[in-house]
Design a protein around this nucleic acid. Sequence first.
DNA 1: GTTGAACGTGGAAGCGGTGCCACGCCCCGA
DNA 2: TCGGGGCGTGGCACCGCTTCCACGTTCAAC
Lengths: 330, 330
Amino acid sequence: MATILDVAREAGVGVGTVSRVLNGRERVAPGTRARVLAVIERLDYSPNLSARSLSRGRTEAICLLVPYLTSASVNARLQGVVEGLQSSGRETFLQIVDSVDQRDRAIASIVEGAKPAGLLVISLPLSDNVMACLREAEIATVGVDVALDGVPSVTVDDIEGGRLATRFLLDRGHRAVAFVGDLEDQPLGFRSSQNRRLGYLDALANAGIEQADEYVKSGPFGRASAHRLTRELLTLAHPPTAVFAASDVQAFGVLEAIRSDGLRVPEDVSVIGYDDIELAPYVGLTSVHQPLFESGQMGAGLLMARLRQEEVENVSLAVSVVERDTVAPL
Amino acid sequence: MATILDVAREAGVGVGTVSRVLNGRERVAPGTRARVLAVIERLDYSPNLSARSLSRGRTEAICLLVPYLTSASVNARLQGVVEGLQSSGRETFLQIVDSVDQRDRAIASIVEGAKPAGLLVISLPLSDNVMACLREAEIATVGVDVALDGVPSVTVDDIEGGRLATRFLLDRGHRAVAFVGDLEDQPLGFRSSQNRRLGYLDALANAGIEQADEYVKSGPFGRASAHRLTRELLTLAHPPTAVFAASDVQAFGVLEAIRSDGLRVPEDVSVIGYDDIELAPYVGLTSVHQPLFESGQMGAGLLMARLRQEEVENVSLAVSVVERDTVAPL
DNA sequence: GTTGAACGTGGAAGCGGTGCCACGCCCCGA
DNA sequence: TCGGGGCGTGGCACCGCTTCCACGTTCAAC
């Protein structure tokens, strides 16, 4: 591999000049710049990243901070991010965080250790304290599916999504609409289920429906728990005629529970999910679609713009109901 | 952050000695070693990776070389890999490769640029030429779902899997068994569909069944293409009574095509898939299960062992048929 | 003609490690 | 007693880049 010294010698200039050309600094005569660029091209030179990091005291890389790779929606977003970042040519490394402890360790290693140029956070809220550290360390940060203090983000309005799903059921005559969601004291601070519930309550209130507390169920994320909660709903004196699940995975548990009770979907009970994950079309699940892949792509775009020192705005993506076979008019 | 010089001063030794302690070299008096380790602990020192890479001329990182993140099976393996690597504390970066061109660029950047300590390749065959370069560059390499020349790997026997799936159908009385798979001149050289077809043919031959060529269909990967191929099968003079799809995604296309013809699964036509992806249980698809996540974990284990200079053996994982609701006796 | 600011440039001092070389010491054999 | 071979160690050159300082040059202003 050629080094900066080879380039400098070959172009008949000093290493400082080559470095200035490399980094697009001013103060280089156009002719010199052209000559250096020609030599770089000819020698197929590319700077040694370790040396650059050492000298600059920071890394060129981009770090992706991601919770639960097993979650389908996080996964879809991640795919978008990776695709969007592909063209940047930067090293991209992955930090996966499944617990508060791992999160804190990951952040410590980012701020004090790797010092990447950019950080892209998916779905994981970070404290103001942490955000201050990141700003301090001059790490360009972007949030995807999470609003982070003082940095740009790509978000989807979960409250609006909850409203949309609920209105979809109300518009079809349902009045006894239940909600099945996550526990709301998430250690990692996820709020999507909570926000979707708020949207749900808001839509009901707007429709003038007095909501029975017994229609709002929450439990650990997953199919099994949703299954159990749904059985509870079905044994109520007045079981709901429709269920809004805070995620598609939970909706699958809801579907199972209804069917295992000998009831039919959507004839006896309607079900709407959220996320419109890849599985949804196979199962015919009506769901609230949010642009998962695109949110990742856009997040990558924001980060790359930030790294080019451009000013960027927050992006908010629209949600919509995808109608399939699990909701019927009452 | 403390540097090696701080440690050396604090411990009253030279930087060389600290470096030797750090790297577990011999030739350090036990007392000195203990003293240095104590200081390292006290100062919470950890070496600067950029400096180390620069000096050693190679990176500590591990690179993951992965095709098509969108593929469910690659994804599941990747999750296993990441989980398995989590404990190593090494930087892990991702190179995603969707075309021959990207593959070659990625390899060039690995061998000449980043020079990671380890490389874990998922499902992507590499030429002997490339393998020689990797050996030359002393990059510890491990294959997951691909056998790579001269390095350890975790593989699953696709031929055996094809046999298993086919025998499963034969054992239930089917004689007219069709195969729906991928095109076999994959630019990136994937051979799994081809191998599964070989297993299929072998099982038929062993059962003394003369195979009609018209029962073997191949097309681009994906649901739509499998759908189309299946319609062709169903219009044959003697349509098959069972279909073996080279992957679950293709099996979904097969299911759709059969049902859209007004036929029932499994009463009219049986279907068996391959991979047992997350979706399969939801749809009730009978499929050949291969331990995707585990293969990734084991691959990570092999790589970490190689990086500790341990000798390791190839691992071959077993496949098995998971019976659900899409296969019935003839 | 002198001054000095702005410009373009070369070069050296780091960045924080690694690894080699040289040095002093101790112990053993001649 | 002396020489020589380990052993344990300190220190310095070096990895390839950035960055800053200093040095000509040019040119406008006075």
